[in-house]
């Protein structure tokens, strides 16, 4: 698949905000869907990048995170791949259950699943694909490789 936007970013949590801003600036869509982009997609992408750097690449600055974004037929897809060993997403407990509500972690994947239309992992568990459905005719502007 050819991607509209591809980013390779180093494992540095300070780069997450800039990377997400870069992607968001290139999203052009109907005002009706502004909130779904601003909240749902932004949160999902931020959490995916955070998980990739903290739990995938384990803060290793020599490892990188690849982000591929495609918008086709109203389907906005972001694929985030880290260089870690991967994990089994089914082992992450529901953070809203009473026994987990006071835990400080475990909400990233939950938020992705709540806010995106599709969230899936590859078999290795080091690549997550997020899908948000927008309207037909939406487009990414300024496709670039960085």
């Amino acid at each position: 698949m050819e991607h509209d936007l591809v980013l390779e970013i180093p494992t540095d949590v300070r780069s997450i905000e800039h990377a997400v801003d870069y992607v968001m600036e290139r999203c052009r869509t109907c005002e009706t869907y502004h909130k779904r982009l601003r909240l749902n997609f932004r949160v999902g992408l931020t959490e995916a990048l955070t998980n990739a750097m903290l739990y995938g690449n384990e803060y290793d600055p020599s490892k990188r995170v690849r982000v591929e974004v495609t918008l086709e037929g109203g389907r906005l897809e972001a694929r985030v791949t880290d260089q870690g060993r991967g994990f089994d997403p089914s082992t992450i407990p529901d953070p809203t259950e009473p026994e987990n509500i006071l835990k400080s972690g475990g909400r990233g994947l939950f938020l992705m699943r709540q806010l995106l239309d599709e969230v899936s992992y590859n078999d290795q568990g080091n690549q997550v694909t997020l899908v948000l459905r927008l309207e037909q005719g939406s487009a990414l502007e300024g496709g670039a490789q960085a």
């Binding site: 931020t46 955070t50 400080s104 972690g105």
Partner: peptide, 9 residues
């Protein structure tokens, strides 16, 4: 983000 929520908890 979820890390921020976690620190508040």
């Amino acid at each position: 983000d979820s890390s921020g929520l976690g620190v508040l908890v």
